[in-house]
Nucleic acid binder design. Structure first.
Lengths: 196, 196, 196, 196
DNA sequence: TGATAAGCGAGACGGTACGTCCGGTCTTGAG
DNA sequence: CTCAAGACCGGACGTACCGTCTCGCTTATCA
């Protein structure tokens, strides 16, 4: 999803275009939505042209994915000691990731595109779930050992619960209705759900 | 979302076209996905032409919504006595609704369209949540009275939990991995989550 | 070269677009020249878009030919009695045809295009020469009979002489240097050249 | 139009590239015509690359002009004693210059380019007419003195007559129809036209 | 003889213009 | 007012090619 790399020979890319395009993509996405977003409009707003975009990203979907969900976003998840705090962190990360206006505008469109492009599907879901799922798995294992979590709780199910709830909440609720109270309610339900 | 009604005068509509178009829409949707779906292709497969479709539905989104989520689907939810069974029924309904191939293909596309059409958004979310949410609310109230559910559990949160989990599971898992075991796990988590 | 006709069924063309495009073509041609002329610019100036142009003319060359040398221009050549006057008329027609700014801008480009498209070549040369050459042939035959023209004078050669001189004069001279004096000189040379 | 000169310092140009490019230009020009001719294709056929060409000629037009009409071609016109022979020589030179396949392919393109580049126009017309027109002027003056030419005949007009006829003949006739008979006819017309 | 300067090949870049697809509308002629 | 048929207008697409630039290297002239 990162702009397609190129060989060493030849004129190097102007990295300012990369940045300007990503910025323009996010801005336009928030204004007009995924379906109304056009490559030409992005290029114009970024002060460049279509071929410059197609050299870097093969499709609109790849560009949007890269602009809205940059790869570095998810690398490190802070692990506190308390299970409840860690679950809460995960919920907050999910809300953060999915709740941003650009993300709300982008996600349904990206999911719709994955129907025709399995490679893209892997990219989208992979980057979204990537490190988070592994991290959750390890955290729950530790929780089982500590007696805080039932042994038959599957990390995949918990992951789907957290991700799904965050997705539906950001999609169906007005943004300001996803507040601390809501988060506490959800964390409460999950903690009791996975607890012994 | 039902085909737009028309005045009484003049030649009446051929209702066989309504059905043929809906059938063609679902079939093509499963084959090519929402974004690749074109009105022209639907018209051709249904043995008619574009104007006949535009007379009935204003946009592709309205047509797909009507074809994939017909209005009568959700009116009655069977209520057993046991809370666990009723929650399970709700999860199964969600999976049924979202898990069908046509629904998996349609939903992200429809959600993407709602960004530009609030009326459509109300239709899509309304029909999906409509009766179900009211029903859940009443069932949880009864559960609280029976001492099976904590008093501070909000039906909206539980609804989001169920709907979200079903959505993510159908979107991320292969279809055959959403089986009875998975359902039991989810129901288990929810029951413990909302229990006293 | 006339806009491609189409079947009777379906929506009829907007003839105002035909006219606006031809007008825009001539205007832009005079401003920027044949090579700098673009289909998109013509469409924009005509208040329409590229597909509307491509529906009517297959290439820029066909459009320019149709706009600059409309078919009806050449149908009737007034024949006076005097040979000298008729030759003069022919020279004036040639200058008129080739001397207009749009024609000066269009011709070299059109000739360059004919290298790759024999059908276009026939169209361009045919329309230019068409009736004129036949007319000249008959006029010279009559001249021979009247003893005003040598019997071995070939009409093709005379035609090439007149057309070529007009072309080179309009191409190499400033426009205002192609005046009545110049015309008289040329007619004089030709009259003596073909006379007995 | 000669390859742009460069400073003395640094690595000198490889003159074999100059020649190879000119050769490739003429060959490709005859095959595909002026408009379809691309710098990239010339570079490839000449066994080099685009920057090497752009270092030598600023545009395709300059390169083609230099390759098809090299500067040394016209410097000396053999003058016989007889006026008719000299006029004939001029016609033959014109046919030679304009009749070669490369010239037929190049000229309309070059003329089309001159619309946007007055400097090029001067180059193209200047090289074509240059010495020839001066020579014709002097020859006609001598003819007047010898009583072979009318005093009011203008050399510019005669020049346009010869050049134009040659141009149109090479453009409109098949090459093999421009033979000795045709030349004799034209020379005859001109001789009678300018004679006393 | 080492520094300077311009050439060379290779190849990608930024950007203009292209020709096409297709979405939604309109017209015709019949029912 | 609907139907079938089909062309229309116009927005957006993805691509071809132009002229430029950068790279790593070579080949001359000049200090």
């Amino acid at each position: 999803m990162t702009p397609t790399a190129h060989a060493l020979a030849g004129r190097p890319r102007d990295t300012r275009i990369d940045d300007a395009v990503r910025r323009a993509t996010v801005e336009l996405l928030e204004q007009v939505g995924y379906l109304q977003l056009t490559i030409a409009a992005i290029a114009e707003r970024a002060g460049t042209n279509k071929p410059a975009l197609y050299r870097r990203w093969p499709t609109k979907a790849h560009l949007v994915h890269d602009a809205v969900f940059p790869p570095q976003d998810l690398d490190a998840i802070p692990a506190s000691g308390a299970l409840r705090d860690d679950i809460r962190t995960l919920v907050v990360i999910g809300l953060d990731l999915l709740g941003r206006p650009a993300a709300r505008a982008a996600l349904p469109g990206l999911l719709a595109e994955t129907a025709a492009d399995p490679a893209l599907e892997a990219d989208v879901l992979g980057r979204a779930a990537g490190g988070t799922w592994t991290w959750l798995q390890q955290r729950l294992d530790a929780g089982v050992e500590a007696g805080e979590v039932r042994a038959d709780v599957k990390s995949t199910t918990v992951f789907e619960l957290i991700a799904g709830t965050a997705f539906v909440a950001t999609a169906m609720r007005p943004l300001d209705a996803v507040d601390d109270t809501w988060i506490d309610d959800v964390v409460d339900l999950i903690m009791r759900g996975i607890g012994p």
